[in-house]
């Protein structure tokens, strides 16, 4: 029975990956060829992809008996889901932010595709995981990933739009659909700030959980340490932005560096280090 469920989950996730890939292509076409209608279809593809994606998460939750956070397959499917939901929310909340999808959706479909390729085996929840601190830790890790992704998408579009505008070639017409540079910069800063907060809460909740489970508050585990490094990077970014007026270009590059480190923390550490988070990185 569980075998069938796992196969269904994987199938649903591949459908979602396909639809997210379609939406990525459509967003890029809309951005480059200035096709407003295509943008609408891209959003339709995102929503259509979110349906099987949500269904897969629900099936997984029921089959496993715990939230989707125990191994890479589960972590990736839920992280990407939250990222896509946040992207839809931003489209609804802020004007002219649809084309952030040209960055967010390609990252989402690539990360989800990578996650689906990992082992979908269902694991039993260990005793030390049965604490609400873990829920806080995991929830905020996902929120951090989503916020930093949105922030980096705004930063990336800032860089692209800024570059085209500087060259003045086809700029005014081609990139009209994007928000103004100031708005992109502000969006990028605000979501980086949220990401900083969420990473902070994630680290704190994780430490409290570690103290409960292992009697050690902080053990310099690679994931702990790299999370601290990510937090430092976003801290540096925020200080430079707020106090030293590092807006625009330089801030956008630093923001992208922050996302790269965060993606490495979430998905890459298991390839290099042995860590206490082995269950989640493998």
């Amino acid at each position: 029975m569980i075998q069938v469920d796992v196969k269904t989950q994987v199938l649903l996730l591949w459908v979602a990956v396909g639809l997210y890939a379609v939406s990525s292509v459509l967003y890029i076409i809309s951005l480059v060829f200035r096709k407003d209608k295509v943008k609408v279809w891209a959003r339709v593809a995102v929503v259509a992809g979110l349906l099987p994606h949500s269904a897969a998460i629900l099936l997984r939750w029921i089959a496993a008996g715990h939230g989707p956070y125990l191994n890479r397959f589960e972590v990736v499917m839920s992280d990407v889901w939250l990222g896509v939901v946040l992207f839809l929310f931003i489209q609804w909340r802020y004007r002219k932010t649809e084309l952030l999808g040209a960055v967010i959706m390609p990252v989402s479909f690539l990360v989800l595709g990578y996650g689906v390729l990992s082992s979908p085996e269902i694991r039993t929840l260990p005793g030390s995981f049965q604490t609400y601190w873990l829920v806080v830790h995991i929830l905020f890790a996902k929120l951090a990933y989503s916020s930093c992704l949105v922030s980096a998408a705004a930063a990336a579009l800032y860089l692209i739009k800024g570059r085209v505008e500087r060259r003045k070639a086809r700029a005014a017409n081609l990139w009209h659909a994007l928000p103004d540079l100031d708005v992109l910069d502000d969006l990028s800063y605000r979501f980086a700030g949220l990401g900083f907060l969420f990473i902070g809460v994630m680290i704190i909740a994780g430490s409290i959980w570690a103290n409960q489970a292992w009697g050690v508050f902080w053990g310099w585990d690679p994931i702990e340490t790299w999370s601290l490094i990510t937090w430092f990077i976003y801290g540096i970014y925020l200080h430079l932005y707020r106090i030293h007026g590092w807006k625009g270009h330089k801030a956008a590059w630093l923001n992208l560096l922050g996302l790269m480190v965060l993606i490495f923390v979430l998905f890459g550490i298991g390839y290099i280090y042995t860590t206490n988070h082995a269950g989640y990185t493998n």
Binding site: W220, P222, T225, W226, L228, I229, F232, I233, I236, Y273
Partner: peptide, 10 residues
């Protein structure tokens, strides 16, 4: 500096 030191340490 703390970031660099932590990077070295890890």
């Amino acid at each position: 500096l703390l970031t660099v030191a932590t990077l070295l340490g890890v």
